[in-house]
Design a protein around this nucleic acid. Structure first.
Lengths: 343, 343
DNA sequence: TCGTTTTTCTAGATCGATTTAGAAGAACGA
DNA sequence: TCGTTCTTCTAAATCGATCTAGAAAAACGA
């Protein structure tokens, strides 16, 4: 059972290794009778087919694309937005008979930690919401693999993205129209994930968050905008961050979650305190995950599954020649946003 | 840039390939000065470190475990239950610096289609809700890799599971107590995924579904139990299947979804027709995903994230010596189940 | 000073396949 | 019948590393 290789099979059948290889990979290169005989003895010997690593080495194809999936792999799954992206990507990967390799990035920011990214046998890489400047991205560039990102950064030629600035601006305009001049932005804190409290501008992870803030500031030039974090991008940190804000002396009139999961956490924190979103305090999100609709959350819709699909095709489908794709977004106004209370 | 290998670097520095290899893998085997020199020239030459496939071939370790994730990879992501499992698994994989390789199983049931499973460079395999007898499972056994499953089937020595029969029975007892004698079970149909309608017993995918049905039948010996499918395991097929049932002349008093997503679909189908779950028709689920609580769905709770975590440790943590782990379940009664209307 | 241990480095085999170039034989056309 | 083409199969090189065993040099102890 153990140690059965192409050679073993070849010897058993009495043919050359090349022929056995051809039996698996190029059926038209040998007679059907011989092929059947080879496959039969292979089965008898318990040979499960050509070894994956050896094949990958020799042929230079791994048959899989790597996915750099947010800073913290295990957290990513708690955000339906991220999962939607993965679903779209998986759909395309499935079509192209390609596997998806989810790689942990390693918590600390030392290059040594991204071993998975260094050692992964992959043909290409998909990058989803990885903060700019993350060491794993450098490693990826060093490897010279084709890569596509959800961020129009400077490190990959290919990307599928939305106009983050414009989208955030449309949200900001909505808030401005409603009279909000005192806003708290709820975001995740990559540096010190555990702590809850106000953030300095330089603590914001570069990438989407920066761009969204930029758009918001542009559309709300006269507003006071504070940054608050409750930790990682998750429901719980939305609850925590909002709780911290609400229990302070200085409540804003609106809370802008930089993701829907955080915004939903914010709504929960309001509910616990007997406050009604949209009446007492406005809450908005970003992404438009399914739960946002049920909760009546005002948010920015973006076609996330398409994002995954297109990014997959960028990497796998040779017929797709565009390298940079911008997807549309839409402001979806629901009950969680309302006019700012007059004081 | 292209074609830079260990050898190239070795030649450039003037040392043997072994030494360059050691510079990367066994830093204590050479002087720090030489190591720095090697790493520096490697960087200059644009060498990104040892090739993954070659390393995997020689050392026999791929650094990743394969995930057989439900029949249809792209559908799996729409079920929070499946995602929860993956989150738990990813958490452990992350700890052990191991990547997760999501492998498409291939739609049709021909062995030829499971190429990914054949060719994947993996050290072990995690099997989540794959129907018994799926060709991919045979291939996996043939490869002789360590594997762990969520089903206590006969093909893997290791598993993490719940007592499906007992759990389903407790649900059945609940329904019996409430007076239900006419039940429709809502399940997914692996054979002909597209169609909506009644299923013959032999069309039920063996694995979890069979066991749950067994438990249900055991606890409801006097009830009429019909099987209905709306397609794949998804919200939409719950809606479709239930719609088909409700629009027929022969309505049951209870609808048992074999997963929460399908049960939630059933509730939606009721809502559309102005029916109230638990009053007009009882609806139950299975799994207890977060949305179930919000919707007030009576269901069976199982610790899905732990399931993923434990399965991961079964494969990765040498300190875990148990091979078979049974997790507890709990019947959670909510508003969606109520007494059967007397006729 | 000499034998022993430790450190540092290397030669060469090996992992398990695929690929290229070409040999041997069969089939074919004229 | 002879040269040509097609089919079927093979020998040997190669993919890019890691590993084993051991050599050379340095450090050490008495």
């Amino acid at each position: 059972m153990a140690g059965v290789t192409l050679k073993t099979v070849a010897k058993a059948v009495g043919v050359s290794p090349s022929t056995v290889s051809n039996a698996y990979n190029k059926p038209d290169q040998l007679s059907a009778a011989l092929r059947d005989r080879i496959l039969a003895t292979a089965h008898e010997l318990g040979y499960a087919g050509p070894d994956a690593s050896a094949r990958a080495l020799r042929s230079g194809k791994a048959g899989s694309i790597g996915v750099l999936f947010t800073d913290k792999l295990s957290y990513a799954f708690s955000d339906p937005f991220a999962v939607g992206f993965l679903a779209g990507l998986a759909e395309v990967a499935e079509q192209f008979r390609t596997s998806l390799l989810l790689m942990p990035l390693g918590g600390e920011d030392t290059a040594d930690n991204s071993t998975a990214v260094k050692q992964a046998a992959i043909d290409a890489a998909a990058i989803f919401c990885v903060p700019h400047g993350h060491p794993a991205l450098e490693i990826l560039t060093a490897r010279g693999l084709p890569a596509a990102s959800t961020d129009p950064g400077d490190f990959t030629e290919s990307w599928v993205a939305i106009d983050e600035v414009a989208a955030a601006a449309s949200l900001g305009e909505h808030l401005t129209r409603l009279g909000h001049r005192d806003v708290v932005v709820l975001l995740d804190n990559a540096r010190t994930p555990g702590s809850t409290g106000e953030l300095e501008p330089d603590q914001v992870a570069s990438g989407n968050p920066t761009l969204r803030l930029e758009g918001l500031r542009k559309a709300m030039p006269e507003a006071r905008i504070r940054l608050v974090s409750g930790g990682y991008n998750a429901f719980d940190s939305g609850v925590a961050g909002t709780g911290w804000v609400l229990d302070s002396q200085d409540r804003p009139t609106a809370i802008v979650g930089l993701s829907d999961v955080q915004a939903l956490g914010a709504m929960e924190a309001l509910r616990v305190r007997g406050l009604v979103p949209g009446r007492d305090i406005t809450v908005t999100g970003f992404d438009d995950i399914p739960a946002a609709e049920q909760a009546g959350l005002t948010t920015i819709h973006q076609p996330i599954k398409d994002k995954g699909r297109l990014l997959g095709r960028l990497l796998l489908d040779p017929e797709v020649t565009e390298r940079q794709i911008l997807l549309p977004t839409e402001l979806v106004v629901r009950a969680s946003s309302g006019p700012a209370p007059k004081n």
